[in-house]
Design a protein around this nucleic acid. Structure first.
Lengths: 390, 390
DNA sequence: TTTAATAACTCAACTTACTTGAATATTAAA
DNA sequence: TTTAATATTCAAGTAAGTTGAGTTATTAAA
């Protein structure tokens, strides 16, 4: 069994092969979310015998997916030999296709980005983009000295919503891609497992190696051009029937000027238009304005926080998440302001006197979070078993 | 292995025992959602060998969980012997505890209610209620001639939200139950598997044997005293960190009189208060008013439909469900009016030209849907494997 | 009508991966 | 120093799914 076999295969029926695969993922996932662990502790947490875990660890270590971390004494008894995920054990390619630009990343098994590329797009034709991706993949693999066979797969992020919906036909759509079988296209070209999702979902997955490490139920509010929501339930994305769950941009919120769509109050575009007097502003310009506490920006922040608070109430009451994470293509300073300044709704199931996690917090992977998240979609496949229920 | 072993045990690690259990559930679940199936077809759908399915079917049939339905020819080749779930094979107890009344049901493995009981509560003390439940269980088992060992488990429905939250302290709370370990309480008394959830979640599960048969992703809007939402993702409930997901009652909706909480516009209580001039109205009285198209009720319906349409937009855009189902303690006529009269939001990911399912429809299990659903929580355990991911 | 193709199903032997129980090593507490 | 607790490995045992050959029933073509 090679490491790329770790991905996919999730038919409902269990047989020795698939059980083995499942257990390997469970062991890796457990170690990943705990940082490091010993055989016996893993066995207990998974409900397996230590012998079984021992065998699996031997395999995973031989394949380079795990590394020994020495023994750690914890009270009476023989100290347990600790194992951790070997970041060098595998890599995932992250691809984010936007109407204007192609972003790629190479992320290691530890969730750390090792290389990134940014390429302005002039031709959106699928085969052109596939070729660019192949080139960028090779560049990044070479740059990092990674052997191609260590590449587990690729995650592709594309603008949603997918298919013909009441929200389609927006500026974010990629012309010429509507009728394409995207997973097949990339999977054939890359000869690897491929997962496709939207930016908010990918960003949510990226946080499994950041703010959401060890969490199983959380939401991610993603700032792209607009605003998207990524939902994680039991460690898996809630993508919806057609992959369009989390379209929160049109959520109506109350403002001084009546009801407005959320993303008209809370998004990069909304900030930019509130600051139109300053001329065209990119993210860095916004960052500088925030740094000097520009009054126009502060006013926008106030209205944004208010709107965000309303959205937070809806998200919390509908999902009851462990936490809600903010991130995306916004200056970290502004995200901080939002996370700190947003009024936490009182009428919420998350308004608990005994809460241990913050109800709203910032993500850890910065502006490229969706591009890294694209890769995290694949990494998640190595750490968990997908469940095709019913 | 006895049939009650079918429930629970869902540790992450796979071993022969658990794989067997998993496969048994998968076979049962597949047959249940398809109605009837042959060995080979099941094997294909689950990714198992026909031999494995054959062995499992032999066991399940011997245990009385499956019944043969004769051979069915489909093209060339030996006709496949069809199997269906034997409704008599197992039963689940449904218990709904409200502040004023105790409702119970006995539901067979086919999802059909076989007996119900309703008992006005004067004493809410946990031990008193447990005793009542034991009595009602025995009554119902006797009435239906069901042997006690055919009882798989019990689902308990209680008013949410659970734990101390910003929404707690409402009228629906059960005094004296806040600090109780409810699953343990009933599980010890009944000596059976016990699942606890809220009314909306239970109602959602009830529809797996009704309007949502064969569906894996849908939402259920439940009319109780207020309004609740049950979310089903990949055939499993999305209950949230503390079991409080789906608290949609406080969702702000726009009305002629400004923003109002959804359940102030769409709920039995809201209908009753809109019709206060008619004096106190129970569900049957509402039904009669609807039947004669009472103008006050029609006016209420109009505002309710408008509010419901807004909520529907939020649900659809956040979850992208296959369908949204309406049900609960409301007259069927009113539910029909709501399902028909609610404006389907245009700005929605569910607004698809090629949609095959209705975006909004009525459930099939009537007023007792939460009580039946309580039992369905258990039945669902017999047909699917829970996944404790990460 | 005969024959070939197709598909479902069973039997018996085989394989795989987990479990069990005994043995050993290491640490902390008595 | 002794005892209890815990981690780990080894070797044998077990359970469940797979494989491949053979049987039976049905459709479609010769």
């Amino acid at each position: 069994m090679t490491s790329s076999d770790l991905l996919f295969d999730s038919r409902p029926g269990a047989n020795p092969d698939r059980s083995r695969l499942r257990n390997r993922k469970a062991v890796l996932g457990q170690i990943n979310s705990a940082g490091q662990m010993g055989r016996a502790a893993i066995a207990r947490s998974l409900g397996l015998s230590t012998q079984a875990v021992s065998n699996i660890i031997a395999d995973l270590e031989a394949e380079g997916l795990l590394i020994e971390r020495g023994a750690q004494s914890a009270g009476r008894g023989l100290p347990a030999v600790q194992y951790a995920v070997n970041p060098e054990g595998g890599f995932a390619l992250g691809v984010e296709i936007r109407p204007d630009v192609l972003l790629t990343s190479l992320v290691d098994l530890g969730g750390r980005p090792r290389a990134t590329r940014r390429k302005v797009l002039t031709d959106l034709a699928p085969d052109k983009i596939v070729n660019q991706v192949l080139q960028l993949r090779d560049q990044m693999l070479r740059e990092c000295g990674v052997k191609p066979d260590r590449l587990l797969g690729a995650g592709i992020v594309m603008p949603g919503p997918f298919g013909a919906t009441g929200l389609s036909g927006q500026a974010s759509d990629l012309p010429g891609w509507q009728t394409i079988d995207v997973p097949a296209l990339f999977s054939e070209a890359l000869e690897r497992a491929v997962v496709v999702s939207n930016d908010a979902n990918a960003a949510a997955m990226a946080e499994r190696f950041g703010a959401a490490q060890g969490l199983t139920d959380y939401a991610f509010l993603y700032f792209g051009a607009g605003l998207g929501l990524g939902l994680v339930h039991h460690g898996q994305l809630v993508e919806g029937t057609f992959g369009n769950a989390g379209e929160i941009g049109n959520l109506p919120v109350m403002t001084k000027h009546g009801l407005k769509p959320l993303e008209q109050m809370v998004s990069r575009v909304s900030a930019q238009s509130a600051l139109a007097a300053h001329g065209p502003l990119d993210i860095d310009a916004l960052d500088r304005l925030c740094d000097v506490a520009d009054p126009d920006l502060m006013r926008w922040l106030e209205t944004a926080c208010d709107a965000l608070g309303q959205a937070l109430g809806v998200i919390e009451n509908l999902f009851d998440p462990q936490t809600v994470i903010l991130g995306g293509a916004m200056p970290a300073l502004i995200l901080d302001h939002l996370a700190q300044g947003t009024p936490l709704p009182k009428l919420s199931v998350s308004n608990r006197p005994d809460a241990t996690l913050p109800r709203l917090q910032c993500g850890t992977s910065g502006r490229m979070t969706a591009t890294f998240g694209a890769a995290a979609l694949i990494l998640n496949r190595a750490f968990t078993t997908q469940t095709t229920a019913l």
